[in-house]
Computed example of a mutant assay.
Amino acid sequence: MLFKLPDNDVLYQALVSRDASYDGRVFVGVSSTGIFCRLTCPARNPKRENCQFFQTVAACIEAGYRPCKRCSPLKPAAEADAMIADLLAALEADPLRRWSEGDIIAMGYDPSTVRRAFKRHFDMTFLEMARLGRLRDGFVTLSSGGRVIDAQQDAGFESASGFRSAFARLLGRSPSRFSGEELLLADWFDTPLGPMIAVSDPHTLHLLEFADRKALPTELRRLQKKVRGGIGIGRHKPTEAIKLELDDYFAGRSAVFETPLTMHGSPFTRRVWQELLTIAPGETRTYSDIARLIGKPSAVRAVARANGANQIALVIPCHRVLGSDGSLTGYGGGLWRKQKLIDLETTLAGGVSAPGKNRREPG
């Protein structure tokens, strides 16, 4: 369960004083060295402006940091499972390698066993950890205006075709086909629950999804068909706005999202999404509840489909909808994320108004 993070000034003081109460609960990434540490690390304290704080080891790795060799932040998981220690050491030694199940087998491990172990300890598989880290490096290079060849090298792809194929699977087109005049821009940023991709025009947010969601490439292709000009790589103001709001959300400061939205869906689907926006943090509904509230009590399955079609995660809170028996069901970002979001929102329930009062709808 995520706990309420103090602000960065408090965390930096905890780092300076090597406060053991944060050990295993908060980690620091140091941008000047590219490593992440426990707050009790005996190394010399980094400068305040070079510090980025995370709640999980996975978030540090997803942000591109390597584990510190002095304080060994991966030690608990490694001590619990020598296989994890071996694979993480191999990944650290060769982070740009295009890892496959064949490589795992060659190291003497069963891929399914590795998959379960990494999901249990890090909420992502070993191959996802390796792939997302590589692709993120290329994405960031392109977003900052870098050349395709530089992005390819930063992502660790030996061939241009392999790099273009990876991006084509994600965005539906290769970087060489970007005109620079696309109406929508996609950007990547990290959260405590994993990297997310946001797509916006200069005025509204169109998509917000976890980067490892299997349906993301399909959603992006569908979005490109609906909007003239396609999707490029970069960041409009709504993406900046939602990133700041998500920082507040994950820090436990606020669950109010005011970034304007454009919702792509049928009138029925948008009606379901509007109802989701009325569910306050700390509250949940069932699919049957939603069907009844929109005046369609027999349309429970249609409500479930509309809920699953939501492509603006967290802001349109489909994670607050449960099965009829109160069980966690049907969340594209993974049931483990759904549970952590609900847990996080229990700390926000007091005094937080329901978001979504002034949303912009597509014309």
Rank of each mutant, 00 (worst) to 15 (best):
K296R: 12
L244S: 00
P73V: 01
G24V: 00
L341M: 13
D9R: 10
L341V: 11
D150Y: 05
L15V: 05
S100Y: 08
I342R: 14
G323K: 00
A299S: 13
A198I: 02
P238L: 07
T204M: 05
Y22E: 00
E345D: 11
G230M: 11
P46H: 00
S288R: 11
F126Q: 12
T113K: 02
A198D: 04
R301Y: 12
V114D: 01
L74A: 02
T125P: 09
R320L: 08
G332P: 10
I294S: 08
A106S: 13
S176M: 12
A90K: 09
P42K: 02
I105T: 15
D247L: 10
A304C: 05
S32H: 00
L246V: 11
C51Q: 13
R120I: 01
W273M: 02
G282W: 02
E181K: 13
G350W: 11
R292A: 08
R120K: 12
Q152R: 04
R173K: 00
F178D: 10
I197Y: 09
R136H: 05
R253K: 15
P297C: 09
A306R: 04
G145V: 07
I231W: 02
L328P: 04
E128F: 04
L96E: 15
Q339E: 14
L132I: 07
R66C: 07
R253S: 07
G333C: 08
